[in-house]
Design a protein around this nucleic acid. Structure first.
Length: 188
DNA sequence: AAAGTGATCATG
DNA sequence: ATGATCACTTTG
């Protein structure tokens, strides 16, 4: 049993530029079960496991902000994968996205929930994430980054939320991914 | 079920 | 400059 625990012990590692170079759907799946990490002003580091994500996939995706092309707001989505895209929704909610893919390809993953804060507006409030972190480089930043312990988790796929403005076809794509269950809650 | 809230983008 | 719209949350 002890050996099993040692062998199955996962090491945390920060996601690298390579990890972010994939398409948004691949990334959205990979981020379920990964850790959103935030260093606050006072120096304390908060880590929460990501429970839900959504993929937004380029100008062809009518649900994606970049659907109408490059604008002041969507410009950041065209950068190489690995930076944060944060915008204000409904005048009060800061929404955190992770830009993915190569430069020039506007794809991003919306973080919709972490353990203890389900809902995109709730998690940003909890982790004090706002537009001052827009364009933050998640590969290098000491304020905001992502880690993975390499464990595979199960998730379900469903249509994305709040995109009634998109085409029926895009509304129906199952690009929302939700953590299904914990593999094992070991008390380390 | 509906308000609340302000940036953003297309229009003029 | 003006106005509709919005990757939501909370309150009634």
């Amino acid at each position: 049993m002890q050996i099993l625990q040692i062998l199955s012990k996962k090491t945390m590692r920060r996601l690298t530029a390579e990890d972010y170079a994939v398409d948004a759907v691949t990334m959205a799946k990979a981020l379920v079960g990964a850790w959103l990490c935030r260093r606050l002003e006072d120096g304390t580091v908060v880590r929460r496991r990501i429970t839900e994500t959504e993929a937004y996939c380029g100008e062809e995706d009518t649900a994606c902000h970049a659907h109408k092309g490059r604008t002041a707001r969507t410009d950041v989505m065209y950068s190489p994968g690995g930076c944060a895209y944060i915008y204000l929704c409904y005048g009060m909610h800061e929404m955190l996205n992770v830009v993915t893919g190569p430069e020039g390809r506007p794809e991003a993953v919306l973080i919709r929930g972490v353990e203890g804060a389900e809902g995109p507006g709730r998690l940003t409030k909890l982790l004090k994430i706002d537009r001052s972190l827009n364009r933050e480089d998640l590969v290098l930043s000491n304020r905001l980054w992502l880690e993975s312990d390499g464990s595979r988790v199960k998730f379900t796929a469903a249509p994305r939320i709040g995109i009634a403005y998109a085409s029926k076809r895009d509304q129906n794509r199952k690009w929302r991914f939700t953590l299904k269950h914990e593999i094992s809650s070991r008390a380390d």
